[in-house]
């Protein structure tokens, strides 16, 4: 469980994180979504006590991270930039981290096996590919079998197989009852991985919602109806709160009515339907709409979408 209260971080005159208040609950994967520069990494560093908040506070399992006797057991973290000495082997890196908590050497072997680094564990971490580096980061996060995991852009640089591996690993960890907090700037990735979403832009909270809710709220619930009797059906459907538009002769786009209701009306009229499709706005579009004004660096001319 991660709880942030009015968490704020200011660098000079730039407000990186602006009064963020949110709770990350155990048992589900929570996505931390926002465009680049939204303050995700800064927030995660503050959770780990690496950066001091300018004001506000954040706790993990009820206490500030640094106040825990065995912090790695509370939170395992994969930070965005690699936090590994390039000249040290992956094995010794993990061994050194394990030593701070008195974690058994056998556990180091276990996590190396778990992330599939056994063949390269004795090699210099500096020679690792991006994907191997991410796996090493995940191995260190899992070292003390923590109840909470924080991962900053874990799928960055991974191949499709690796992405799927992470996605399943995170969902398994959440299913075991752990708190899993994953940042990303890709809505499409989060839609597949996360169940709950905390969306930020320019350091501010934009939404704190479940993925399902977001889909429901974001979609304008357009239903596409194809029928040879378009005109007849249109007249029957149009009313207060219901608009019907048409781009083709036999095609209607209905807003404000559910697909099932349209079907019933059509049956009552004896209208033949060739197609009745509810169209959900894509999550990507919903995310773009939400964060449009909060993107830090916008291209001068936005391509017509």
């Amino acid at each position: 469980m991660i709880e942030a209260h009015a968490l704020t971080k200011r660098y000079g005159d730039k407000l990186a994180v602006d009064a963020l208040t949110f709770t990350v609950r155990p048992g589900v994967v929570t996505g931390f979504l926002g465009p680049n520069g939204a303050g995700k990494s800064t927030t995660m560093r503050m959770i780990l006590g690496l950066d001091q908040p300018t004001s506000g506070s954040v706790t993990v399992n009820g206490k500030a991270y640094a106040q825990h006797a065995a912090p790695l057991q509370e939170v395992g973290a994969l930070l965005e930039a690699r936090a590994v000495h390039t000249s040290r082997s992956a094995y010794n890196h993990l061994l050194a981290l394990a030593a701070t908590h008195g974690i058994a050497r056998s556990r180091v072997d276990d996590v190396i096996d778990l992330v599939g680094l056994q063949d390269v564990a004795r090699r210099r971490a500096g020679g690792f590919s991006l994907g191997m580096g991410q796996r090493l980061g995940i191995a260190s996060a899992l070292l003390a079998n923590p109840s909470t995991l924080i991962l900053d852009e874990p799928v960055n640089g991974l191949d499709p197989e690796g992405i799927r591996w992470i996605r399943e690993l995170l969902q398994d960890l959440a299913a075991e009852g752990r708190t899993v907090f994953v940042s990303s700037h890709l809505m499409s990735e989060m839609a597949l991985t996360a169940e709950h979403l905390i969306i930020v832009g320019r350091g501010r909270l934009i939404a704190d919602t479940s993925v399902a809710e977001l889909i429901r709220g974001a979609s304008t619930d357009v239903v596409v109806v194809r029928t040879p009797q378009a005109a007849q059906l249109r007249d029957a459907l149009v009313g207060t709160d219901v608009t019907v538009s048409s781009t083709e002769q036999e095609l209607l786009e209905v807003t404000g009515l559910s697909a099932s209701r349209i079907g019933e009306i059509a049956r009552d009229l004896g209208v033949v339907l060739h197609e009745l499709t509810p169209q959900h706005a894509s999550l990507e579009e919903a995310f773009m709409d939400m964060t449009r004004d909060d993107v830090e660096y916008q291209a001068a001319t936005r391509s017509a979408a």
């Binding site: 006590g49 690496l50 912090p71 930070l79 690699r82 936090a83 590994v84 000495h85 981290l97 260190s140």
Partner: peptide, 18 residues
Amino acid sequence: SGEYATGMIRATFSAAPR
């Protein structure tokens, strides 16, 4: 300084946050 240069210091201070 080797730890600061490579980012290792973040792992170090995560493991020993005091």
